[in-house]
C-alpha cells in the first residue's frame, strides 16, 4: 500500500456516462470543473465507472472523498440533491457504492483498512435522485439535467466546509 495521492481531496463522479441518468455523477463533476475553472486547489476531480473493491482502491491515499452519483431512494422528486456521509447511506437505497460483483464499498473499505491502506477519513455522498438508469443514452432527463448546477454547488460548498 505505497500509493500516494496527488491531492488530499478527491471528487469522484460515479456512473455510466452512456446510460441515461446514470451519467449524472460525471456531469456534476464536469460542472464543478467548469465553475472552479480547474482552480480547485488541492482537489482532484475524476470520473469513474467503478464500485466495491475497485472504488475503494481508487480512493487510496486521499484524506477526503466526495462521491457524486445517481441515487434511487424512490422517496424524493426526480432531481432532488441528497447529501450525506457514507455511514448514513440508507441500506435500501441504490448507489454505485454497492458493487455486488465483489462487495459493498463499506466492506471494501474495511478490507482496505485492515490491509493498512491509507483510506479517507471522510467520505461524503452527493446523490441526485434519478430513475432512468436502464436505457442507453448520452442525454439526461430534463429534471436531472436541471439538478446538475445545484449538485455542483453542493459539491463546491462541501469542499469549502473542510
Amino acid at each position: 500500500m505505497d500509493d500516494t495521492a496527488s491531492a488530499p481531496t478527491l471528487v469522484l463522479g460515479l456512473g455510466n456516462p452512456i446510460l441515461g441518468d446514470d451519467g449524472v455523477g460525471w456531469r456534476v463533476v464536469e460542472e464543478v470543473a467548469r465553475l472552479t475553472g480547474g482552480q480547485a486547489g488541492s482537489v482532484e476531480l475524476d470520473y469513474v465507472a467503478l464500485g466495491g473493491l475497485s472504488l475503494m482502491e481508487r480512493m487510496i491515499g486521499y484524506r477526503r472523498v466526495i462521491l457524486v452519483d445517481a441515487i434511487l431512494t424512490g422517496r424524493a422528486p426526480l432531481g432532488t440533491v441528497h447529501r450525506f456521509p457514507l455511514e448514513a447511506l440508507p441500506p435500501d437505497v441504490c448507489t454505485h457504492s454497492g458493487s455486488t460483483h465483489d462487495t459493498s464499498l463499506q466492506n471494501a473499505l474495511r478490507v482496505g483498512r485492515a490491509m493498512g491502506a491509507q483510506l479517507p477519513d471522510t467520505i461524503l455522498i452527493v446523490g441526485v435522485e434519478a430513475r432512468s438508469v436502464f436505457d442507453f443514452s448520452e442525454e439526461l432527463s430534463p429534471e436531472i439535467a436541471a439538478a446538475v448546477p445545484h449538485a455542483a454547488r453542493y459539491v463546491i460548498q462541501s469542499l469549502q466546509e473542510a
Binding site: G51, L89, P91, H96, G98, H101
Partner: peptide, 15 residues
C-alpha cells in the same frame, strides 16, 4: 452472473 453492472445504480447493501 453479471446482468447489469457496477456502471448503473445498485443497492447500497443489497437488501
Amino acid at each position: 452472473p453479471c446482468f447489469g453492472c457496477a456502471t448503473h445504480s445498485l443497492p447500497g447493501q443489497m437488501p
